[in-house]
């Protein structure tokens, strides 16, 4: 038996909006730790890792570990039927081939349930090693989204370079080239407006902008994004989900042949 009650149901809608462009079908794993997902895009270039901790739910019952295969477009269709202020409860019986999403309006005057068929998905779970990153950039998520969007209008790839000068996002395309340099800035009114660049050693990596732009669909989940770079590893683009967990996107770099 599984029963997860999320008072801020809109969070789940935002989570789906953040990942459904990247991943079509995925297993949601439920354990005493929380509600989680790990999935790659179909070409195995990017990986998404989601965790919503059990403590973040108003009620969290998961009698045994359960993996539920869902089509994310269909899940998003169902969640779209909830009101923005609704409480969402996810329910499933052991061995059932369906999951139920129950939506309650804040005043309890409207209660709906939507049942969705589950699917069998062969999923591969990957071990993500703990790593030391050469550079970690913490910046406003809206600013990162704008940079990715702007650069994608010029080129297909972005070179992210971190040096003593700051962090540089560069692209080049048929019509020209663009460079955006951000310097550390902590003299801001609100902490979420700060740009903090932590550099252990200089690093420069190239990534496909199409994926970066897809990751920025998570912007409504957090005012801050953290980008961790290492020359030997995929970049990590992390959006924290307030008091609940995170979405982390991993993207393999482009490699010079």
């Amino acid at each position: 038996m599984l029963e997860l009650r999320l008072v801020q149901g809109s969070l789940l809608k935002k989570v789906l909006d953040a990942i459904k462009e990247l991943v079509k079908d995925a297993n949601f794993d439920c354990s005493t730790t929380g509600f989680s997902l790990q999935a790659m895009d179909s070409s195995h270039v990017a990986l998404v890792s989601l965790l919503l901790r059990a403590e973040g739910f108003e009620h969290y019952r998961c009698d045994r570990n359960l993996s539920m295969g869902m089509n994310l477009d269909n899940m998003a269709k169902m969640l779209k039927c909830s009101g923005n202020d609704d409480i969402i409860t996810i329910k499933a019986d052991d061995g059932s081939d369906s999951v139920t999403f129950m939506f309650e309006s804040p005043t309890q005057d409207k209660i709906s349930d939507f049942e969705m068929k589950l699917m069998d998905i062969d999923s591969e779970h990957l071990g993500i090693p703990e790593a030391e990153y050469h550079a970690i950039i913490r910046m406003p998520s809206a600013e990162f989204a704008k940079i990715c969007r702007d650069l994608a209008s010029i080129g297909d790839t972005v070179v992210i370079s971190v040096s003593k000068e700051g962090v540089k996002f560069s692209t080049r395309g048929d019509i020209g080239a663009a460079n955006v340099v951000l310097r550390q800035n902590t003299t801001v009114d609100k902490p979420e407006e700060a740009t903090i660049i932590e550099m252990n050693e200089p690093v420069s990596l190239t990534f496909a902008l199409r994926y970066m732009n897809s990751f920025t669909k998570a912007t409504p989940l957090s005012n801050i994004v953290t980008i961790s770079l290492s020359s030997e590893l995929p970049v990590v683009v992390e959006y924290k989900i307030a008091e609940m967990g995170y979405i982390r996107f991993y993207l393999a770099p482009k490699i010079e042949e």
Partner: peptide, 14 residues
Amino acid sequence: DAKQGNILSFFKRV
């Protein structure tokens, strides 16, 4: 042109 890397060459199946 640079070649796109693959997640599976960095993270192993468990």
